[in-house]
Write a protein that binds this DNA or RNA. Structure first.
Length: 510
RNA sequence: GCCAGGGUAGCUCAGUGGUAGAGCAGAGGACUCAUAAGCCUUUGGUCGCCGGUUCAAUCCCGGCCCCUGGCACCA
């Protein structure tokens, strides 16, 4: 059994989760579930990033300890992912001992190897914001914005990681591993970035400025800053499991360059560890319409759609609408289009009419199919095409197109039903009509079962419900599920099921 | 400025060197098992602009315009 280790980025818990957080976890979950169905031994990691200045400051504002603060916010993130049926196998928090121990041991190892050195960091520091400022923070006239208060240039001893020494190695690695970053154009973007010389990376903060972090093992007066803490979670979570390297680190485009594409592989390489096999870089959901909604008093938090329309409808929309790697617009209007036309009208209604007809014309029990004729052969042929295309598309992360093909198959199943018109056959006593009635009922149910198999990783609970009303229990993997057959014959079906009810009245989002 | 992605029907997008496609929306129709659903038919486009290569370009090349994103220690 092939091992498959996949991770999401860990979320910084200084705030509440939003659509972007949710999307990344759902996307990764879809991949993880897909690989499980293909028979891989999947390990799926997600988690939270809990150290740093902002968390420390937020906790202080609320007058509580940082640990208490992150316990609350981390739980909020985790609750959302549970609600979204994100099937993670492990949830790591950077404040856990198992993580801190690994971070410290890696830092010590690199320090012993001479990869980390002490030097003076010079920069402009805002006491009010408790942070160093960048040149780009300056106003056009060269002064510092009011919010920073008094800004002074200070010199501070710190620890640096010899990033620059590995620049040539990284360029060579990228050139010889063209599949390291998906999509391709992101790969090029990194090489472009590496045309400029790298600076070494400052990896520490003195404790008197930042307490809330992992102390450097070789100088307890400092904590490590951001990257050696956050990035290492992918490794620390499985350091004792023999699962490294990861097959995929799934991340957003905002943290590709430089952290994941530059710091991360170099950190690992310097520590004698292989880089992850690949980075999967997704785009962003744009919500330019949000302003408009606000002006009409109908600001909609996308996550609220989960409560209103269900987890699966939400997951379906995210995966159906987004071309992985690109950006996509999130609008309630588009959500409603997908929900109504694809989920309610096409899929949901097909389920319900199948149940109804089986109940009405066959006593609630699915009959065996007779020999296939042209209509059956056409649908079965389309199934083979749909299945093969969907598998290939899923393999290449083209989930949106795979879903589109599956929808076409469902549409054609609806058309098949019109062609056979079982409601007419059901009123005929002719033996030929009765035989065709059985065949048509069996055919539509089998088509439905198969389509559901292709939707399972995107809409797990919907798949469970449909299989349940069809009186069917699928096997754990796809190996035997994707073949057209007669395994539903004799199954007792439910009388009715409305999966995606239409919203009450238009223009009244709850 | 540099780099990348994109500019195709009202909307969201697919697509190929040879008379432009899908879904949704709109229009018409036949039906009734079904979530006022489903099915059939159908209106609709100078394929961003200007040149070039070619027998032929939306698709190849050059230039230009517009939109979006990135451009380092910032999560």
């Amino acid at each position: 059994m092939k091992s498959f280790y996949i991770t999401t980025a860990i979320d910084y818990v200084n705030g509440s989760p939003h659509l972007g957080h949710a999307y990344e976890k759902v996307l990764t979950d879809v991949i993880a579930r897909y690989r499980r169905q293909r028979g891989d031994q999947v390990h799926f990691l997600t988690g939270t990033d809990e150290h740093g200045q902002k968390v420390q400051a937020s906790a202080r504002r609320q007058g509580i300890e940082p640990k208490a603060y992150v316990d609350t916010t981390a739980a909020e993130f985790r609750a959302l992912y549970d609600r979204l049926e994100v099937s993670y196998d492990d949830f790591i928090r950077t404040t856990e001992p198992r993580h801190k121990d690994v971070v410290r041991s890696i830092l010590q190892k690199l320090y012993d190897q001479g990869e980390i050195y002490r030097a003076e960091y010079r920069g402009f520091y805002s006491t009010r914001q408790e942070q160093f400022l960048q040149e780009k923070d300056r106003l056009p006239d060269g002064s510092w914005p009011e919010i920073f208060g008094e800004v002074t240039e200070i010199v501070e001893p710190n620890y640096f990681f010899k990033l620059r020494a590995y620049q040539d190695w990284l360029i060579d690695y990228l050139k010889t591993h063209e599949d390291f970053i998906f999509p391709k154009f992101r790969h090029k973007q990194v090489l472009e970035f590496l045309k400029e010389p790298l600076n070494d990376l400052c990896i520490s903060r003195p404790k008197d400025r930042l307490e809330w972090g992992i102390p450097l093992p070789f100088d307890e007066g400092y904590v490590t800053y951001v990257w050696f803490d956050a990035l290492l979670n992918y490794y620390s979570a499985v350091a004792d499991k023999g699962l490294w390297p990861a097959d995929f680190n799934v991340i957003g485009k905002d943290i590709l360059v430089p952290p994941h594409a530059v710091y991360w592989p170099i950190m690992l390489h310097a520590a004698g560890l292989p880089p992850p096999k690949a980075l999967l870089v997704h785009g962003w959901w744009l919500q330019s319409g949000a302003k408009m909604s606000k002006s009409t008093g109908e600001a909609v938090n996308p996550l609220a759609l989960v409560d209103q329309f269900g987890v699966d409808a939400f997951r379906y929309f995210l995966i159906r609408e987004m071309n992985v790697g690109q950006d996509s617009e999130f609008t309630v209007g588009q959500f409603m289009v997908r929900y109504n036309s694809e989920l309610a009208n096409n899929l949901g209604n097909l389920v319900n009419r199948t149940l109804n007809m089986t109940t009405r014309f066959s006593g609630g029990q699915l009959p065996p199919a007779g020999p296939p004729e042209d209509p059956e052969r056409a649908l079965q042929g389309l199934w083979l095409k749909t299945r093969d295309e969907a598998l290939a598309l899923n393999e290449g992360f083209q989930f949106h197109t795979a879903l589109e093909r599956t929808m076409v198959f469902l549409t054609e199943t609806n058309a098949y039903i019109e062609q056979r018109a079982p409601w007419k056959l059901g009123k005929s006593a002719e033996p030929r009509d009765q035989a065709l009635l059985q065949t048509s009922l069996a055919t539509m149910a089998e088509a439905l079962r198969l389509a559901v198999a292709l939707l399972q990783h995107v809409m797990p609970s919907t798949a469970r419900r449909i299989n349940s009303v069809l009186g069917y229990t699928p096997g754990p993997t796809w190996a035997e599920e994707l073949h057209w057959g007669g395994r539903l014959a004799g199954a007792k079906v439910a009388a009715s099921l409305v999966l995606f009810p239409r919203p009450e009245k238009p223009g009244k989002p709850a």
